[in-house]
Write a protein that binds this DNA or RNA. Structure first.
Ligand SMILES: Nc1ncnc2c1ncn2[C@@H]1O[C@H](COP(=O)(O)OP(=O)(O)OP(=O)(O)O)[C@@H](O)[C@H]1O
Length: 729
DNA sequence: CCATCGACCCTTTTT
DNA sequence: GGGTCGATGG
């Protein structure tokens, strides 16, 4: 059967038709890679080459998976009971839960999130009495995650040539693994690593999966790590129907073990592979595309790609030099309002930044302006304390070995069972080789332990709930836990908005559970907890939500928006200072910028700040080197602003046209002014430009105090007395 | 045992 | 500026 009239160009169609044998689709941003992969999946079904469940497609995020699944269903009109389109993590988790017993894995294992692993590592450091400036828990975790991404077990761990520190980390790694085992838990990297081990140690399982998935496809291939590649390689090794899709210029996750080298490995392992290039960009204007291509050429190690578009030239890229982050946010929101007035709906806009910490100012401004927005990254709903507390109860019910969950549940709310008691239970569980919760059970019946009187009621209550899990809905169980534990009691009737929000969040959790039960085929507590563990907030992003989107550049991968703002283009922030030590790392930052630029369909706005508050202190940084790497002819500075808005155009920081090819111009601000410390709220002053005004707010800031001044006939302005000559009346 | 306060480290980026 | 952890006193 031939392809129906899929809306694809000839190269895309070629990739779709080439269903047999290894295939690499290698192409630049916005060239329809994901679209091609989706149609390829559909085509394999429609041409009856395989049953829908015999095709595996791996995506980068759950959201991408969900979208691809929906597209496939709408193209093929199949009734999809279970399509294997998911992230690596979700797929590996599924393998482990359903076939883990073949590799000696207890399928009820818990998944530890970042906070859990951090806390675990802290206790390990205490146990091993490690207190070093060079070896922090954070650092050890980082090393271990890296080792795991490369499939290195503790005994083989080495750290460069620094034997001493390497040996220490290897010991920590070993202890960490031991703890995970007693907890019957895995961290995120374990999901991949243990799935790989399962395949390698259980020939029957490997054979089964090789047969089960006759076609394998991977999106965002450039950001797969070593273990992920080994997994797909193993699955596809015999039938060799492996299609990978990627763009080396968009590799932005090497810091968490992603390995661009996988592109080369693919060619080595599958030398017969066909390579198809896609060269037409369907997403962006000519200007934006030119900007992106010009930038990325500054990277030394990359494969040159042709990328062209039939789209319009479009508007110039706009650069704004902001005084500080408040001014930057002010400018962004002003632009959003302008464009909104000319017909762009709120969800056309995305504001990107390098670090999550930068989001706050934008949020505040958006709230004040009454613009609806959605923010991703940083703090997740499921990271909130009240949510984690309640989920801990549910985890105890599933995995009695999960000491972390039990400890958390016991302490929320506090019920007279403290650290001493819990440590005794811990010791008992080790000496008697029992899961933590069972040790608690034994102790609560043993008269030798005085504290049993306090432990018993809690334990019995938990067991009672556990005995009900079979017959009750999950949401009912959760409600029972909330009610009978008295979790909300301290917050009820409180007028504190914080308490109010805790109650609301708990209610939201209950409805989330109920919602899950309604949607799922065969809901289970275990599956719900899995979904929560793997959920990221980008998964809840909605492109037609009628809201402005705020996110980091990393989260923006794979998305597209009509109007994009890339903010904080300062040396040390973007590229981040942690990357400056290493040319390769700066290249990755540049790719990140490339990814950001290429998310944009119609308009692109860039900005940087002269001054930015970090950790509450001011820092001055020159504009990002990346700005000098953009083509100067399409870049347009925003003309110097004339008063009119709430927060001021501090005249010394007027925007300038970008000057390329030279180092950033020196800071032109005058140091002549008063440093502001001797102005008081309520004082009247005269400003050289705005005239007579009264000081409303004095913000002491560390180095550069700010004054909020109300000027007659003009309104409120933010003034830096250090840079302007203010005269007292 | 637990609530509160202060010291300290922190910030890249996320499945 | 903020969140986490440990010391301290109730
Ligand atoms: N043949 C085509 N005809 C019309 N539109 C297309 C075609 N191919 C791709 N597009 C559109 O171009 C945009 C980019 O496609 P897609 O997201 O698949 O590209 P991509 O290569 O995966 O992008 P990136 O790697 O930058 O995330 C989408 O809006 C898609 O619908």
């Amino acid at each position: 059967m031939e392809t129906p009239d899929y809306p694809l160009n000839p190269q895309q169609l070629e990739a779709v038709k080439q269903t047999e044998g290894p295939l690499m689709i290698f192409a630049g941003a916005g060239s329809g890679k994901t679209r091609t992969l989706t149609y390829r999946f559909a085509h394999i079904i429609q041409s009856k080459r395989a049953h829908p469940t015999e095709i595996l497609a791996v995506t980068f995020t759950n959201k991408a998976a969900r979208e691809m699944r929906e597209r496939i269903v709408s193209i093929t009109r199949i009734r999809a009971r279970r399509l294997f389109v998911s992230t690596f993590h979700a797929f590996c988790l599924w393998m482990l839960r359903s076939y883990g017993d073949k590799g000696g894995i207890d399928p009820k294992f818990s998944i530890l999130d970042d906070g859990d692993t951090k806390r675990l590592m802290n206790t390990i450091f205490k146990e091993m009495s490690i207190n070093s400036r060079f070896l922090t828990p954070r650092r050890a975790l980082w090393e271990i995650q890296h080792a795991k991404a490369h499939g290195i077990p503790p005994e083989n761990y080495t750290y460069g040539s620094y034997d001493l520190i390497g040996k220490r980390i290897s010991e920590i790694y070993e202890a960490y693994e031991r703890h995970l085992k007693t907890l019957n838990a895995m961290d995120f990297s374990d999901l991949l690593l243990n799935a790989y081990r399962l395949l390698m140690h259980s020939p029957g399982t490997l054979a089964h999966f090789r047969q089960a998935f006759r076609y394998v496809m991977v999106d965002e291939y450039q950001d797969t790590n070593f273990i992920q590649y080994q997994i797909i390689k193993q699955l596809a090794w015999e039938h060799r129907n492996l299609c990978v899709v990627g763009d080396d210029d968009q590799s932005i996750y090497s810091w968490r073990g992603a390995n661009k080298e996988n592109i080369r490995l693919f060619h080595e392992d599958f030398p017969e592979a066909t390579v198809i290039k896609l060269e037409q960009n369907y997403r962006s204007t000519k200007t934006i595309l030119h900007c992106a291509s010009h930038l990325i050429r500054h990277n030394s190690t990359r494969t040159e790609k042709t990328l062209w578009t039939e789209n319009d030239t479009g508007d110039p890229v706009v650069l704004y030099e902001a005084g500080d982050e408040e001014d930057e946010a002010r400018w962004v929101i002003e632009k959003i309002q302008d464009l909104s007035a000319s017909g762009f709906p709120w969800h056309s806009f995305a504001v990107f930044y390098r670090t999550n910490a930068q989001s706050r100012v934008f949020e505040e401004r958006l709230i004040r302006s009454g613009i609806p927005y959605q923010i991703f990254g940083g703090f997740k709903f499921y990271d909130r304390k009240e949510i984690k507390d309640l989920l801990a109860y549910l985890k105890c019910l599933v995995n009695p070995g999960d000491e972390l969950a039990v400890r958390r549940a016991v302490a929320a709310p506090s019920r007279g069972i403290g650290k001493g008691t819990l440590d005794q239970i811990k010791t008992f569980s080790i000496t008697h080789n029992l899961p933590f919760l069972e040790a608690m059970g034994k102790i609560s019946e043993d008269p030798a332990f005085k504290m049993r009187k306090r432990v018993r009621p809690f334990y019995d209550w938990l067991m009672e709930i556990r005995s009900l899990t079979a017959e009750m809905e999950i949401s009912e169980i959760l409600e029972k836990i909330v009610k009978e534990s008295g979790y909300l009691t301290p917050y009820e009737g409180s007028s504190d908005p914080r308490a109010q929000s805790i109650i609301e969040n708990v209610q939201e959790l209950i409805s989330a559970v109920a919602n899950y039960e309604e949607e799922a085929d065969s809901p289970s507590l275990e599956e719900f907890l899995d979904l929560v563990s793997l959920m990221t907030d980008t998964d809840t992003l909605n492109e037609t939500s009628g809201k402005v989107t705020l996110m980091t550049l990393h989260s923006a991968k794979g998305l597209e928006f009509p109007v994009v703002f890339i903010t904080g283009l300062e040396e040390g922030l973007f590229p981040h200072e942690r990357s400056l030590v290493d040319e390769g790392k700066v290249d990755e930052e540049r790719r990140l910028f490339y990814v950001g630029i290429t998310r944009s369909q119609k308009r692109l706005f860039l900005s940087f700040c002269r001054e930015r508050y970090q950790y509450g202190r001011a820092s001055f940084r020159p504009r990002s080197r990346f700005l000098r790497e953009l083509p100067e002819d399409i870049l347009q500075g925003t003309p110097k602003r004339k008063s009119a808005s709430l927060h001021g155009s501090h005249s010394p920081f007027a925007s300038t046209k970008l000057s390329t090819g030279a180092t950033a111009p020196p800071n032109t601000r005058s140091e002549a002014g008063n440093n502001g410390n001797d102005f008081k709220v309520g004082e009247q002053v005269i400003h050289p430009v705005f005239g007579r005004g009264i000081i409303k707010v004095r913000e002491l800031g560390n180095t550069h105090p700010k004054l909020l001044i109300h000027f007659e006939g003009i309104g409120l302005k933010l003034i830096y007395p250090k840079f302007v000559e203010l005269t007292r009346i």
